[in-house]
Amino acid sequence: MRELRFAKDLYEGTQVDAAVKVFERFGKLSTAEEADAWIVTVDAPSDARVRRLAGELANYALGLTIRGRQAEESTE
C-alpha cells in the first residue's frame, strides 16, 4: 500500500479526481482530504503493481493539472 499526498497548491483537486477515475480499475484506490493536501491511498496485489499504479496516477494528475492551468491562462 502507498499513500500519495497531492499538495492543494501544487495539484488541482478536480484533476486528481479525474486521475483516480482513470486508474481505479487497475487497483484499489481510496481518497481523503486534509487541510493542505488530497490523499490517495493505492493498494494492489503486488508491491510492483502498487508502485507502478501510484506512479502512473501521479504523472496523470500532474499532466492534467498543467494542462488545466494552461487552458485557464489561455482564456484570460
Partner: peptide, 30 residues
C-alpha cells in the same frame, strides 16, 4: 511545471512541499 513535464515519459514525477516556499521534485524510475 514546465521542467517536470518533460520528464513524464521517462520517470514517475512527484511534487511535494518542503519548507515554506520550497517544492520537492521527486523523479522515480519507471
Amino acid at each position: 511545471y514546465g521542467a517536470t513535464f518533460t520528464f513524464l515519459d521517462r520517470c514517475f514525477v512527484f511534487l511535494g512541499r518542503g519548507e515554506p516556499g520550497q517544492v520537492v521534485i521527486t523523479l522515480s524510475a519507471k
